[in-house]
Amino acid sequence: MDFSTENVDTDIAVVRGDGRLNMVSAPQLRETVLAALDAGRRRIVVDLSNTSFMDSSGLGALIGCLKSARQADGDLRIAAPNEQLRMVLKLSNVDRVLRSYDSADEAYRD
């Protein structure tokens, strides 16, 4: 899974991935989010619209990224998870901590 970052504003970055968010790609997500935070982006949106699958490693990466963003006085939100991703978030109760939005645009406008 490759990740790209789009800088939307001086403090907002949208991180997009295409593929499976699992134990192989989870470290890449962490690195990408940390790089955005290091570049001064404090509001991070992880766009999951092209993420077909997520396992517990991917879930752990999202939680770790949320923690890193909050430690940097920022926030992390997720956008456009598919039904499988929503189920993983709900079953793990992470949906209570990491709210999802229908689109990346909606996530950083709220």
Score class of each variant (00 low, 15 high):
57 S>A: 15
59 L>F: 10
73 D>K: 12
42 R>L: 14
58 G>L: 08
51 T>I: 15
41 R>A: 15
58 G>V: 01
41 R>F: 12
64 G>L: 08
44 I>A: 10
42 R>Y: 10
61 A>V: 03
74 G>K: 13
73 D>S: 15
71 Q>W: 04
54 M>L: 14
58 G>W: 14
47 D>S: 14
45 V>L: 11
79 A>N: 04
57 S>N: 08
46 V>C: 05
57 S>F: 12
54 M>G: 03
45 V>S: 06
72 A>E: 03
75 D>E: 13
66 L>T: 12
51 T>H: 02
46 V>A: 04
41 R>K: 15
70 R>G: 06
54 M>S: 05
81 P>S: 06
61 A>D: 01
52 S>R: 02
75 D>C: 03
75 D>T: 13
62 L>W: 11
71 Q>P: 00
60 G>V: 02
51 T>W: 00
61 A>W: 00
58 G>S: 06
78 I>G: 05
65 C>D: 10
73 D>L: 04
46 V>K: 10
81 P>F: 04
61 A>R: 05
44 I>Y: 14
73 D>I: 00
68 S>G: 02
50 N>E: 14
69 A>L: 05
41 R>E: 15
70 R>Q: 15
65 C>Q: 01
64 G>S: 15
52 S>Q: 07
44 I>R: 15
49 S>Y: 00
68 S>T: 04
44 I>G: 06
66 L>M: 15
55 D>H: 08
43 R>M: 14
80 A>Q: 03
67 K>Q: 09
56 S>V: 01
65 C>I: 01
57 S>K: 11
75 D>P: 01
46 V>L: 07
